[in-house]
């Protein structure tokens, strides 16, 4: 059975890094506001680190198999956080780093790329 919601999945995943001040507050707020203002579809999680510590299955759900722009922090950290939760990131996943890159650069990358279409299984 499919729900009326099953059409195409967004493949942008934003990490809000909620529980520590390692990502500059201004950067994450500007990126989030940029995504919501642009009116694009995306997924957002409060804190990937916390999901990894819990081995939360949502990590596997949110990355899936298709290409994904994952907006978080250092790619090496993100890769091994997912691994620790039992989820291997595919080659299709590009990690954008809010600790080093400007909101403008991140938003240009994310919003400038057409989002691929992926069927959902729910």
């Amino acid at each position: 059975m499919t729900t009326p919601l099953d059409v195409i999945a967004p493949r942008v995943l934003y990490c809000h890094c909620a529980y520590a001040a390692v990502v500059p507050k201004a950067t994450k707020e500007a990126v989030l506001r940029g995504l919501t203002d642009a009116g694009v579809a995306f997924d957002a999680v409060p804190d990937l680190c916390e999901l990894s510590a819990r081995r939360d299955p949502v990590l596997g759900d949110l990355t899936g198999d298709g290409p994904t722009k994952l907006v978080a922090c250092y790619p090496r950290a993100v890769k091994w956080l997912f691994h620790a939760a039992g989820v291997e990131l595919s080659q299709n996943i590009e990690v954008l780093n809010m600790r080093t890159d400007t909101p403008d650069a991140i938003l240009a990358d994310v919003l400038g790329t057409p989002r691929p279409l992926v069927e959902v299984t729910a």
Binding site: L5, D6, I8, P10, A41, D43, A44, G60, L117
Partner: peptide
Amino acid sequence: AVTVVRPGATLAR
């Protein structure tokens, strides 16, 4: 965890 669903796109798995 939040998903913004827009026309032509919907929930991840």
